[in-house]
């Protein structure tokens, strides 16, 4: 089983649209599994019309809670907390859940044993069937910690499913950035497909995400999206990729058809005659030979 992750560094370059299109094209010849690793802003499901098969709770860790009747207001919890999560409202000590990282330092230090650690139900993850393959996805509740851990859960479940069912490809729609959820999304990948736009931000973020994939030993290939917005910069990205020995798979034009298709809950490749769809089909042909 091959595991390919779609990344970009910068947000909004078209990761999810490219992932759904590749899944569509792949599904005509192959059985595949999909994972949406952008658990903060999970959008892949909008292009796949998934049917829920299984739902699970995600427990991210624990949160501290101060038992007011046992608290002696000594302030030790506030002293040891390094996340500024303990509030002192004139002697009434409380925990700010959005700041608490669940480290339990206060729990162990409280002389009155007035602090309880309670499991934090931070989200849900799902297995669904979809037009193009089984989809593993998740919903992290607002303002939660630990999206990297949820990404790992989603991906591990997807990988297990793929290997049990003898499926050839796991396609992972990655999150933006280079931090903890991206590192989780990268781990164990055989290939990172980087969707880049020809802008100063796109170029800057490409370098950072490439450093990240290199750091974790994942080979990369590039798709330039919205290439016609700035063809000179697209050329520059190709030249840069060449110096790094990274293959540029192709250039996608800016096409409002991508949004029009999304409004209908479809990837743009359902309209095969659009120039963008033809280029995606050509790109899939190259990727298919890597399988």
């Amino acid at each position: 089983m091959k595991q390919w992750v779609i990344l970009s560094g910068k947000g909004g370059t078209g990761k999810t649209s490219v992932t759904a299109s590749l899944a569509h094209l792949a599904s005509t010849n192959h059985k595949l599994v999909l994972a949406d690793a952008d658990v903060d802003a999970a959008n892949l499901e909008f292009l796949l019309d998934p049917q829920l098969e299984e739902q699970n709770d995600f427990i991210s860790g624990q949160l501290a809670a101060i038992q007011q009747d046992a608290c002696i207001a000594c302030g030790r919890c506030r002293e040891v907390c390094r996340f500024e999560a303990v509030r002192n409202n004139s002697g009434a000590f409380t925990i700010d859940d959005t700041a608490c990282e669940g480290c339990a330092a206060c729990y162990y230090e409280c002389p009155a044993e007035a602090i309880e650690m309670t499991p934090s139900h931070a989200g849900e993850w799902y297995r669904s069937s979809s037009r193009y393959g089984t989809l593993f996805h998740a919903h992290l509740y607002a303002a939660q910690e630990n999206s990297g851990k949820l990404v790992s859960t989603v991906k591990q479940s997807a990988a297990l499913w793929a290997s049990r069912n003898g499926e050839k490809l796991l396609l992972v729609d990655g999150p933006p950035g280079i931090g903890c959820p991206v590192i989780s999304a990268c781990s164990g990948a055989d290939l990172a497909i980087l969707v880049v736009e020809p802008t100063v931000s796109g170029e800057h973020d490409l370098e950072r995400v490439l450093q990240t994939t290199t750091h974790f030993g994942v080979p990369a290939m590039i798709i330039i999206n919205k290439a016609d917005i700035n063809p000179e910069r697209a050329d520059a990205i190709e030249a840069f990729a060449q110096t790094r020995g990274i293959r540029v798979l192709g250039r996608l034009p800016f096409d409002t058809g991508v949004t029009q298709a999304a409004l209908q809950g479809q990837p743009v490749t359902v309209w095969p005659d659009l120039p963008i769809s033809r280029e995606l089909t050509r790109i899939w042909g190259i990727l298919e030979s890597e399988l």
């Binding site: 903060d40 802003a41 959005t98 910690e145 630990n146 999206s147 999150p175 950035g177």
Partner: peptide
Amino acid sequence: PGTSCPVV
């Protein structure tokens, strides 16, 4: 971007 700890 996102809705988790860095945004909070």
